[in-house]
Structure formats: C-alpha cells, structure tokens
Design a protein around this nucleic acid. Structure first.
Length: 182
DNA sequence: TACCTATGAACTTATATACCTGGCTTCT
DNA sequence: AGAAGCCAGGTATATAAGTTCATAGGTA
C-alpha cells in the first residue's frame, strides 16, 4: 500500500508581481522577507499546503496530501489573485505535479547489507554511519527508493503516482527474492 | 594579469523514513 | 551531583523556484 505524504507542484502565471505590494494586499496569510528568501509564502490555513510565489509569476505548491489538494490550492491561489485584481489571464498559464513523496511498508525487517549486494552496488548507496536508510535507484525508473531496516520504505522523485506504485511493486518482488536466498 | 562572463551550488519549503549527538530537564 | 531520559537538529532523498556568491574559463 503506497501512501502519499507530500505532493510538490509548480506553475506559471503570465504576470510579474510586486511581491511587496501583493503581500501587503493579501494580508496575514502572506509572508514575505526578501532578505531571507526571494519568494513570498502563502498559507491559506494552518495545516494547508504552502504556496511560494515569485516575482516572475512562477509559483510552487508544497505539502499537499494528494494531487487533488495540490490542484485545489492552485485554484484558491488563482481565485485570491483574481479577487485582488491581480488577474493572471493568459494562455501561457500552466501547473504540473513535479514530485510525489510516498511511504510504503514491506511488512518485514530488512537486512540492508544483503539488499545492497542483491539490488546491485551500482544502483545502491548504503552508508549507515551517514544515513540509516539504503538509497536505491532502480535502473529505468525515474524515482528513488529509500529502504529502512524496519521494512518501511520511502518512494520519492516521481512525477506520476502510478510510476511510484509500479516501482514499489517491483522493489517488493526484488526484495522478497533476495531475502529468500539470504 | 586583469577583467568579464558563465556555470554551479547554497539558500528555503514540504514530507516520510531512522540513527546519532548535544543540550537540557528530571529524578534519585 | 550524577545518571537517565527526552527533545531538537543534523545526516539523506526528490522537486520546483530566484537570488547571491564563488569559482572557472576565456579573452585581451
């Protein structure tokens, strides 16, 4: 069972913002400290995903629990800007999911040293003194899998949820084959 | 050698995972 | 006072973004 824990998306509005003014107009849900970071932060509610808006009109949504939530936050951003007459009307406007961060469970404790060998040294990184997880980059898959001795797994870097799910299924098979020989 | 351009990396945010360490508090 | 426990932060992963600073290379 692959569970989404974080969705990151980015988009473009075909306008240039004066973030100082935008932050002032929007009020307390906006936070802008150009000395610290060039983006303006926007959070609709305490536990809501974070939106980072840039001078160029580009923006990022981080911390969504689903693709739907990321899109609904984007819609709220568009509505908010429209209400404040910073209307981003353009054909160039776009938004896409850039990264799904997921967790999953293999249901058994893992011998990470055996897995490093079994999954292939060229595809794995395991330095327990540096980080307790095994970093696995399955060849061909455009995502990265972190495996922990507890059997818990993190799948990250995928733009497509189905890719993350398929990758986990493959890893699940590979791991059970390797551990059967161990 | 001096100056200019180009590249690249750190910064920030979210999030799970887990292991170590330092600092602080609490209990004996 | 010393031991024990707890909490926070650093370690690593992906990804977008703009700014800023460093370094590399090339040209004069």
């Amino acid at each position: 069972m692959v569970e989404i824990v974080n969705v990151i998306g980015s988009g473009l509005l075909d306008v240039e913002f004066d973030l100082e003014r935008v932050a002032a107009d929007i009020g307390s849900i906006a936070e802008y400290n150009p000395d610290k970071y060039p983006g303006m932060y926007l959070r609709f509610a305490e536990d809501a995903p974070l939106v980072t808006v840039y001078r160029t009109g580009k923006y990022i949504v981080t911390g969504a629990d689903s693709e739907e939530e990321a899109y609904s936050i984007r819609k709220r951003l568009l509505n908010l800007l429209a209400d404040n007459e910073m209307i981003p009307t353009s054909e160039d406007e776009w938004f896409r999911i850039q990264n799904f961060v997921c967790t999953a469970e293999l249901g058994e404790s893992l011998n990470l040293n055996a897995l490093t060998i079994g999954l292939g040294l060229e595809n794995t990184e395991y330095e327990p003194e540096q980080f307790p997880g095994l970093i696995y980059r399955p060849s061909g898959a455009d995502c990265v899998v972190l495996l922990f001795a507890s059997g818990r797994v993190v799948i990250t870097g995928s733009r497509d949820l189905d890719v993350a799910k398929e990758t986990f299924a493959v890893v699940q098979d590979e791991v059970s084959d390797i551990l059967a020989l161990d």
